[in-house]
Amino acid sequence: MRFNAPDTHLPADTLITTPLATSPEQNVSEVEIEQAIRSGIENYFDDCRARIPAFIDRHFHYPGAIGTNRMALGWDMLRAPINLLWAPVYALACLVKVLTPKRTGLMWLHGLANRIPAGFTTRVQQHISHLILVDLLNNGQEGSLLESSSLEAYLIEALEAVYERHTYKPVDHQQFSTLIEPLIADALSQYRITRTASADITNSISCTVLGAFAFQKFTPGGIGLGVVLASMLAKTLAAQDFIFGETIGSWYYSLFPPEPSLATTASVMVAVMASLAAFAAFSGIIFDPVQAAVGLHRRRLHKLLDHLQRDVALSTQSSFRPKDQFVARILDTFDMIKSGLL
Rank of each mutant, 00 (worst) to 15 (best):
P101K: 04
G67L: 14
H130Q: 14
L85Y: 09
H127Q: 14
A91G: 10
A72T: 09
P53W: 05
L133C: 01
L109R: 00
A91K: 00
A80S: 11
V134S: 07
R79I: 00
L131T: 01
L112F: 09
N114D: 15
P88T: 05
R70P: 03
L109P: 01
G74A: 12
L84V: 05
F120P: 00
G140V: 12
L92E: 02
M77I: 08
Q141H: 15
P101N: 08
W108I: 15
K102C: 09
H59E: 07
N69M: 12
T100C: 10
N139T: 12
L131G: 02
N69R: 10
L95S: 09
G64L: 05
A54M: 03
D57P: 08
V98W: 15
A80P: 02
H61C: 12
P101V: 11
K97W: 09
G119N: 05
L137Y: 04
R79T: 02
R103H: 13
M107Q: 15
N69F: 05
A113Y: 08
D135K: 04
N83L: 01
Q126V: 08
D76I: 13
L73K: 14
L78I: 11
L84N: 00
I132M: 02
S129Q: 13
R103V: 14
C94K: 10
Q141E: 13
L99A: 09
T68I: 10
I132E: 06
N138V: 10
H59Q: 06
I52D: 01
I128F: 07
I128L: 08
Y90F: 13
H61G: 07
N83H: 01
Q126G: 15
R49H: 09
G67C: 12
L84D: 01
V98T: 14
P101F: 08
A113N: 06
I116Q: 04
P81D: 01
R103Q: 13
A113W: 06
G74C: 15
V98Y: 14
G140F: 11
F55C: 07
H130N: 14
L85F: 03
M77Y: 04
G111W: 12
R79G: 05
N69P: 00
K97R: 15
N138R: 14
W86D: 06
T100L: 10
A87Q: 13
A54Y: 04
L85W: 05
A93I: 03
S129T: 10
